[in-house]
Nucleic acid binder design. Structure first.
Length: 561
RNA sequence: GCGCCUGUAGCUCAGUUGGAUAGAGCAAUGGCCUUCUAAGCCAUGUGCCAGGGGUUCGAAUCCCUUCAGGCGCGCCA
């Protein structure tokens, strides 16, 4: 519920449209000066008048009516005071009517958004370095769906490359079916790490590994079978984590899927005279765009990352006819995406403008970067497990009679991990620390979940029917909470526009704070009549809004905790 | 060397398209549960918004420049 438009319609300024004025209206830093304000400085030049005079003249032309209760001219500002009671009642009623649809919109109807995220490597462990792409992508997936778009989640599997020849070599020489079945990805990683240790002394192994990889490509039944086994095992194992994080995909078409789709790309580039030979390689020259060239074919004729990405982009456009195609990939690859988007543009793909690199910061450990090959990683399943254990401990302390402790601890533990990962602007680097994810107080996931549990608790203790309510005045805490709740739809919208799930995370904190303040100031169960009904309705509206916000992030809300 | 990103309180970070006195959380100190879940709330202090120029009625926000850190810069993905 946004009253900016409503207010803008009451204002007339020569040379400025109603829409323009609407964008100029802002919310004052201090609520005592007004609920909305129009700074008049920018009109000064056009109207050839001092801002304070403009504000004064505008004030005299507006007669307060409807939800506008009072207008004041203060310096160069035109300040509006709303009928806070009417506003609060409207907001709460709307939320209760909308329920789990509150905040959802139709702006995206008929449009498809492809989101490439998580994109795991086969036979590699899922560590905290994969967390950002997974939860950012997952949140965007839900946010776009919430806005009416059709989101298509794509897990662009890393399932192609010599490393799989190495893995097969290791498996055949010192691995066993039993061990791999028992150990899963951990065992595959062990084989891979061992391979590197041994191949340093025996470089001939690499030739063998390359041979095995070639056999996979040629369709050798034994190698393909092994490879598919590794692939299925990886996906099955990672799915357990995806379930916890509420992550879903519509396609697992990975690198190998595009093997037979790259030649046409090369042909097309050739036809369009975009390919240039340089040091034996085939490149697209991007010098005039102030970028290094995009390499399409190696000097040995093999395709590269960019070739595959171009093929994948074209495939996605043909298959899904997307409105936007997002790539949730860390900022290390900024240049790569600029190059490959530019190449698409040069190929005459008008939709190249719809390609978006959703770039985010890196995760490192306190003692430096992670490395799978050196075993220096923090596994996500370990982090989640430790958080769950901590949650369980806290429950035993604070609420030992809780029924489904394990289940609740799971929600809290994973909630803390997801919330922490989505809390800051995505471009910020993160240094992982257990202290930080294990903090359940202050601006954290558990804090927001706890707020919902408080709402539930209050409502469970009352059997008053609050479907109809009416009050004639509201206090500051009630009004501030209602305003916070009202902001949800616009927060969802801007988080999609900026591809920034942290807007939703921060918003959830704002609402939780407003509620907890309200909870302190306003007794609910002791009240009677309409006041009680209104406050119960506020609780319900808070719960609904927070649940909706958290579910966009992939976080579940326990009834009690 | 070139390009991109980042720099705000002791720490981690917010700060919408330039707007009113720069805000939270953590940490510290002191308060608040015989009454709705204390994973909560209240109070207290902290700033050369990295430095320097400029544009503007007005700059943490825009432009230029310096410094510090991160990432990237042809056959890995």
């Amino acid at each position: 519920m946004d009253y900016k438009k409503y207010i803008a319609q009451k204002i007339e300024i020569d040379g400025f449209s109603c829409e323009e004025i609407e964008t100029f209206i802002e919310i004052p830093p201090e609520k005592s000066v007004g609920d909305y304000a129009l700074p008049c400085f920018r009109f000064s030049r056009a109207l050839k008048k001092a801002p304070n005079i403009i504000a004064q003249e505008l004030k005299e032309k507006i007669t307060p009516s409807g939800v506008i209760r009072e207008v004041q001219a203060v310096g160069g500002y035109l300040n509006f005071f709303l009928d806070r009671t009417a506003v609060s009642l409207d907001v709460v009623k709307e939320i209760l009517d909308s329920g789990e649809k509150y905040g959802s919109q139709k702006v995206g109807e008929g449009k498809t958004v492809c989101i490439d995220y998580s994109s795991i490597n086969i036979a590699k462990p899922f560590h905290i370095g994969h967390l950002s792409t997974t939860v950012i992508g997952g949140a965007l997936y839900r946010i776009f769906n919430f806005l009416g778009y059709k989101a298509v989640g794509i897990n662009h599997l890393g399932d192609y490359g010599t490393q799989f020849g190495k893995l097969i070599y290791a498996y055949k020489n010192w691995g066993s079916r039993e061990e791999v079945e028992k150990g899963g990805i951990k065992e595959l990683t062990r084989l891979y790490v061992d391979y590197h240790a041994k191949s340093e002394e025996n470089p001939a192994m690499d030739d063998e590994a390359r041979r095995y990889f070639k056999l996979i490509e040629e369709g050798d039944s034994e190698c393909v079978e092994l490879f598919n086994w590794f692939k299925e095992m990886t996906i099955k194992e990672v799915n357990k984590i995806y379930d916890l994080l509420d992550i879903h995909f519509d396609s697992y078409a990975g690198e190998s899927f595009y093997n037979d789709k790259m030649q046409v790309v090369v042909d097309e580039l050739n036809e369009k005279n975009l390919l240039v030979e340089s040091d034996g390689a085939k490149i697209v020259d991007l010098e005039q765009f102030n970028m290094p060239p995009c390499i399409i074919l190696r000097s040995d004729g093999a395709s590269l990352y960019a070739t595959r990405d171009i093929a994948a982009a074209i495939y996605r456009k043909n298959t899904y006819d997307f409105y936007k195609c997002l790539y949730v990939v860390a900022y290390q690859q900024d240049l790569h995406f600029k190059q490959f988007f530019k190449t698409l543009e040069l190929m005459g793909k008008t939709w190249a403008k719809d390609m978006v690199h959703v770039s985010y910061g890196m995760v490192s450990l306190e003692d430096g970067a992670m490395s799978t090959r050196h075993g220096k990683v923090v596994l996500l399943e370990d982090v989640i497990r430790v958080c769950m254990e901590k949650a369980l401990k806290v429950i035993e302390e604070k609420n030992p009679s809780l029924e489904n402790k394990e289940e609740v601890a799971k929600m809290i533990g994973t909630g803390a991990v997801i919330f922490g990962a989505l809390q800051n602007n995505k471009i910020k680097d993160i240094v992982f620390s257990y202290d930080k994810v294990l903090s359940f107080e202050g601006e954290t996931g558990p804090y927001v979940q706890y707020t919902v549990a408080r709402c539930n608790s209050v409502m469970a203790k009352s059997d008053v029917d609050y479907s109809e309510f009416n009050v004639t005045e509201v206090c500051d805490s009630e009004y501030n909470l209602a305003v916070a709740l009202a902001n949800f739809p616009s927060v969802v919208l801007s988080s999609a526009e900026k591809y920034e799930p942290s807007f939703v995370t921060r918003y959830a904190i704002d609402v939780a704070k407003a509620f907890n303040r309200f909870y302190l100031d306003c007794k609910i169960l002791n009240e009677t009549g309409d006041r009680k009904k209104f406050r119960l309705a506020l609780c319900d509206a808070t719960r609904t809004t927070l649940k909706n916000a958290l579910s966009l992030l992939g976080i579940k809300t326990p009834e009690r905790m």
